[in-house]
Amino acid sequence: ETKSLTLVLHRDSGSLGFNIIGGRPSVDNHDGSSSEGIFVSKIVDSGPAAKEGGLQIHDRIIEVNGRDLSRATHDQAVEAFKTAKEPIVVQVLRR
Rank of each mutant, 00 (worst) to 15 (best):
V8F: 15
S41Y: 04
V90F: 04
I38E: 01
I88S: 01
D68S: 07
E79D: 15
K51Y: 10
A72F: 04
S13A: 15
R94S: 00
V89A: 06
G47C: 12
V27W: 10
F39E: 04
S35T: 13
G17N: 11
H30S: 12
E36P: 09
V89M: 07
S34Q: 09
R67K: 13
I88K: 00
R67H: 15
F39T: 05
D59H: 00
N65I: 01
V90A: 09
V92M: 01
I20Y: 05
K51I: 09
S33N: 13
L69E: 01
L55H: 00
S34V: 11
I38N: 02
K85W: 04
E36L: 06
G53H: 09
D75I: 07
R95K: 08
K85C: 11
I88A: 03
T6S: 08
V89E: 08
R60P: 01
R60K: 10
I88L: 12
L9Y: 04
S35N: 14
A49M: 07
L55G: 00
K42M: 08
H58R: 08
D31H: 13
P87M: 01
A49S: 11
L5T: 04
D12Q: 14
P25C: 11
V27Y: 11
V89G: 03
S15K: 12
E52W: 08
L55I: 09
G23H: 08
G53D: 13
T83N: 15
F18T: 02
E52Q: 10
H10E: 14
G17Y: 03
S46D: 14
K42Q: 15
V89F: 07
E86L: 03
G37T: 00
G54S: 11
L9N: 03
E52R: 10
D28C: 10
A84R: 01
V89L: 07
P25V: 09
V89D: 03
G23F: 07
R11D: 03
L55N: 00
S35C: 14
S13L: 08
P87S: 01
G23Y: 08
E36Y: 08
I38Y: 01
D45S: 11
R95D: 09
V27T: 14
N29Y: 12
I57M: 08
G54P: 04
F18I: 05
D59T: 00
F39M: 05
S33K: 15
E86Q: 05
L69A: 01
L5A: 04
I20P: 00
G14W: 03
S41G: 08
S34W: 11
V64I: 06
E52L: 10
L7S: 04
I20R: 01
K42V: 04
E1N: 15
D68H: 03
L93W: 08
K3A: 10
E1P: 04
S46F: 09
H30Y: 11
S4T: 14
I38F: 03
I62L: 14
V92R: 00
R95I: 06
H10Q: 15
G17P: 06
E52M: 11
I62V: 12
T6A: 09
Q91N: 12
I57S: 04
D12Y: 09
S46A: 12
L69S: 00
I43M: 05
H74N: 04
H10T: 14
